[in-house]
Amino acid sequence: MKLALPSAIKPVVGPFSALQKKWLVFWHTLNVAQRCYFSATVLCLLAIFNELPEDSSLYLGASILALVAMTREFWPRFIHLWESLPGKAVILLFYAFIANYALAQAAGMVNDITGVNADHLPYSHNFSMLLSVPTWFVTTSILLLILLQLIQPVYLFVLMLLRPFGLHKWWHSPDYQYPVTTGLVRFFFGLFLLYQMAVFISSTGMSRGVNSFLRHIVEGFTGQSIQLNIAMQDDADNAHKYTEIDAVAGSAVDDTEQAKLAEQQAEQQAELNELKVQLSAFEQNADKYERHLQNALTYFIYEYESDSRSRCEITPGTRIIELNDYELLEITKLEGDPARYEFVVKPCISAAIGHQFRSR
């Protein structure tokens, strides 16, 4: 037996039912990536309206959803490019280029710790390579994301030009809805993810080596040195500059304009101090990150690469790595928290050679 709804409720239920049907029709016309974009947009709007900080869970959820959506959209195209011979060559060439710089950075890290060439420590060199590769691959992926987002407006413009001619099927399947709106949302979230990832790698200190490499590349193409002079100016120089400006302003403008100029100078000084604090924090995080890598690599060298027994005479309590027939690298573990290690190159004194170096 069906119960009849009261007449007062029917006008209320009707609009909500129609709105629900429209919502379901709209939701089912979207694919998985578009649903992720829509959900991420809702989370961002909620975070903005509630004035939440940048590290809130809503922004994190929006970043994850946007990343899932981009992966869903671009991964099939990447696979299609990989299946072609020219595409495979381009991808392998790009990552071989990146891996070569990561290999050189890994060798430099081993040399900084031990003081000898990394060729004498192949296993430690490989381990250092594994520690360096994620930094380079994550940073270069960010650069690729930048390039894709820079191309995105051109893509949308061409799509809008071709749409009246019925050529949009070249770009999307016939059942793909709202391509232009989706492109704009994708462009926004691309910049949003770019900002989030840039803040992450800068705050963790992962970007020092790659930033130095990119700066030298840009300087090589432009012929100009890239320096943050505004952040590196001395406080005394700033004070001298402001004093000169005040002297000139005092002779040319009235008291009101001098007050405005002083206020602008105070704001600029505050911004300069804030920039110095941020740069100092980034440098400290970079130092901390490199120190963690060096500690892990040093522990690996001492525990796994070095030997406790050898044909050469070994100082009690030390471990060694034979460099050649006449030299060895002696590693001494110094007590402390964290433990420190001392690396010294010494002559190899064995049963056949090196007795002239024996202390008398």
Rank of each mutant, 00 (worst) to 15 (best):
L293H: 03
E342V: 12
S310H: 03
E335Q: 06
N295L: 09
V344G: 09
E283K: 14
H292R: 10
V345C: 04
Q294P: 06
E330R: 14
N273L: 11
A270H: 08
E267R: 12
A339H: 08
T315C: 15
L334C: 06
N285H: 09
E335W: 09
E271L: 12
P338V: 01
T298W: 06
V345M: 06
S350I: 00
D287Q: 07
I320H: 11
I321H: 11
K346D: 08
I314S: 15
G336C: 13
E313T: 15
A351S: 14
P347C: 01
Q278K: 13
E322H: 06
E327T: 10
T318F: 05
Q284T: 03
S306N: 11
A266P: 06
E327N: 14
K276W: 06
E305W: 00
R340I: 03
E313N: 15
A296I: 09
S280W: 04
A270W: 08
T332V: 05
R309C: 11
F282Q: 01
F282E: 07
K276G: 13
D337M: 09
L293A: 09
Q268K: 12
A281F: 03
A286G: 05
L272M: 12
L328C: 14
E267D: 01
E322L: 15
L323E: 09
E342F: 12
P316E: 03
T332L: 04
P338S: 05
P316A: 13
E335F: 05
S350F: 02
R319W: 08
L328Y: 07
D337W: 03
Q268V: 00
A339W: 00
L272Y: 07
I320Y: 00
N295Y: 06
I331D: 12
F282S: 10
S308Q: 13
P338N: 02
L329S: 09
V277F: 12
R319N: 14
T298Q: 02
N295F: 04
E327V: 01
D307L: 06
D337S: 14
E305Q: 05
E327C: 04
I321F: 05
E303D: 10
I331N: 10
L328M: 15
D325I: 02
R340P: 02
K333H: 08
K333V: 01
D325N: 07
Q284F: 01
A266C: 05
Y341L: 05
K288N: 12
N285F: 03
G317E: 04
P347I: 01
A266V: 02
K276C: 00
A296F: 01
T315P: 15
L323Q: 10
A266L: 05
S350P: 04
T318Q: 13
S308P: 08
E313P: 13
Q278A: 15
I331T: 10
L279I: 13
D287A: 07
I349P: 15
E313R: 15
I320D: 08
Y341N: 14
A351I: 11
K276D: 02
Y341D: 08
C312D: 12
A270C: 08
K346Q: 01
I349M: 15
S310F: 01
L297V: 02
Q269H: 01
V345I: 01
D287T: 00
L272W: 06
E274I: 02
